[in-house]
Amino acid sequence: MATGGRRGAAAAPLLVAVAALLLGAAGHLYPGEVCPGMDIRNNLTRLHELENCSVIEGHLQILLMFKTRPEDFRDLSFPKLIMITDYLLLFRVYGLESLKDLFPNLTVIRGSRLFFNYALVIFEMVHLKELGLYNLMNITRGSVRIEKNNELCYLATIDWSRILDSVEDNYIVLNKDDNEECGDICPGTAKGKTNCPATVINGQFVERCWTHSHCQKVCPTICKSHGCTAEGLCCHSECLGNCSQPDDPTKCVACRNFYLDGRCVETCPPPYYHFQDWRCVNFSFCQDLHHKCKNSRRQGCHQYVIHNNKCIPECPSGYTMNSSNLLCTPCLGPCPKVCHLLEGEKTIDSVTSAQELRGCTVINGSLIINIRGGNNLAAELEANLGLIEEISGYLKIRRSYALVSLSFFRKLRLIRGETLEIGNYSFYALDNQNLRQLWDWSKHNLTITQGKLFFHYNPKLCLSEIHKMEEVSGTKGRQERNDIALKTNGDQASCENELLKFSYIRTSFDKI
């Protein structure tokens, strides 16, 4: 039985969820670079991206490699990797027998973001014989899940209580170790020597080791999670996991709180800001991140802002960003909400898709409305799209047979046209069989910064309504002859009103 693990408890099935942008060198404390989270699957090609990484700022997932063999891993080693800020997950990587050479110096898994409450997941690794993470000293947050690894031993010899604050939620089941077939031998045991430290858990006094050649490092209890030197002297209180010299914040392997210019500090002093819960960055760093993602459509890219001495992905609820200094300031009234469309555009074809934009005031991208039916549609669209004030790209209304009016965009005031449909149009209306009105132009103002209007096959939309939009939106004169079809717009509506004058002759039985 794995020490510190839980057996036999019912657990939810383990679901495996399925960018080499360097964020800056980590400095003297770390020998390499800070790398983003990685999802490495199918083959070993991307694994080489770990070569210079000291910190993975995010998670590391290595999974679904069915053609790899043990010899493929023999020359692979990433000794610079010290810390993973989120979680480490391995799933069905064939041929991998140990992690001792792959990650010989991995010391800390912070667990800032977890995989279903777990910071370390080893699942269905069919050839893994031992973990071998002999320098792993601290899992700051989260638990361990090690399950269905039929060859995995050296679990009962690990004292997880020396690595985690609590072992109650560890789930370590259905491994070879369960069948008591392992016969784990710690260093020196074969020669009758006791080389590794022994600890007591559940009444068992057991030597602690990761492999037959690597003991588990056990520091004096007084050192807590700070770690200790090879001689057993406690590291500085700002260290986490390990250090090369005692009581020196510049000799830590990793930091308990924050890293700044080669030393570990309790908090980031001005003019620095907390970033990702582990390091200090200056304003320029946060500003660069903001600008890199301002026009990016890459998933996970955030326009970072500053709030409460932190550089964070977005302002919290009730705050909006001051564009001059990136500071989050309290909103006066309802907060603006910028919604970034991942692929640059979004099609609204149902109430469900409209709900995804609920509360958005600025759309960074283009909207395509293609709704053919739905219950209580006008009210639903207004509830979900009615706060949109600005669209950076274009607005396209296409084959939306259920629409009679666009009044559900009740606050839309600006279409920038930074991206144009077919390279020309910022407003595009095609084949809307029941569209009769755009907006009530006596109450609604709309500016279209650039781009043209396109109207074709809107049989109940009168040309007068379209011409009014040209005047109000500032697009009059931009359109070419064929942009607004004269014969297919309003051709099934009563669009022309003329005053009919009647004269009559009164007659009676005795007068003409």
Rank of each mutant, 00 (worst) to 15 (best):
E33A: 04
V34I: 05
V34N: 06
C35M: 01
P36K: 14
N42Q: 10
N43W: 11
L44F: 10
R46A: 15
L50K: 00
G58I: 00
H59R: 11
L60W: 01
Q61F: 06
Q61T: 08
L63I: 02
K67H: 03
R69D: 01
P70H: 13
L76A: 15
F78R: 02
P79I: 03
L81D: 00
I82R: 11
M83S: 06
M83H: 06
I84M: 01
T85H: 03
L90A: 03
E97Y: 11
S98Q: 02
L102Y: 01
T107M: 05
T107C: 09
G111L: 01
G111P: 01
L114M: 15
F116T: 04
F116V: 00
Y118N: 04
A119Q: 01
A119G: 15
L120Y: 01
V121P: 04
E130P: 01
Y134M: 14
N135P: 03
N135S: 09
L136W: 00
N138S: 13
N138V: 04
T140E: 03
R141Q: 15
R141F: 03
S143R: 09
E147G: 06
E151F: 07
L152I: 08
L152G: 01
C153N: 01
Y154K: 10
A156Q: 08
W160T: 01
W160C: 01
R162L: 07
L164N: 06
S166H: 03
S166P: 12
E168Y: 15
Y171S: 10
Y171A: 13
L174T: 10
N175T: 09
D178P: 04
D184F: 05
P187L: 09
P187H: 13
G188M: 15
G188L: 15
G188Y: 15
A190L: 08
A190K: 04
K191Q: 07
G192K: 13
G203S: 09
Q204S: 13
Q204L: 08
V206Y: 15
H214S: 15
Q216L: 06
K217G: 03
K217L: 09
V218E: 10
K224W: 04
H226F: 15
H226G: 13
G227P: 08
E231N: 08
L233Q: 06
C234F: 00
H236V: 02
H236P: 03
E238H: 10
C239I: 00
D248N: 04
D248S: 07
K251N: 07
C252Q: 00
C255R: 00
N257M: 02
D261W: 03
G262I: 05
R263E: 02
C264F: 01
C264W: 01
T267P: 01
P269Y: 02
Y272A: 03
Y273M: 15
F275C: 02
Q276F: 13
D277W: 06
D277H: 11
R279G: 14
R279V: 04
F285Q: 06
F285K: 03
F285T: 05
F285R: 03
C286Y: 03
H290V: 13
C293P: 01
K294M: 02
N295D: 11
R298E: 07
C301Q: 15
Q303G: 12
Q303F: 05
Y304A: 07
I306M: 04
K310T: 04
C311A: 02
C315P: 01
P316I: 06
S317L: 11
M321V: 14
M321E: 03
S324T: 05
N325T: 06
P330S: 09
G333I: 08
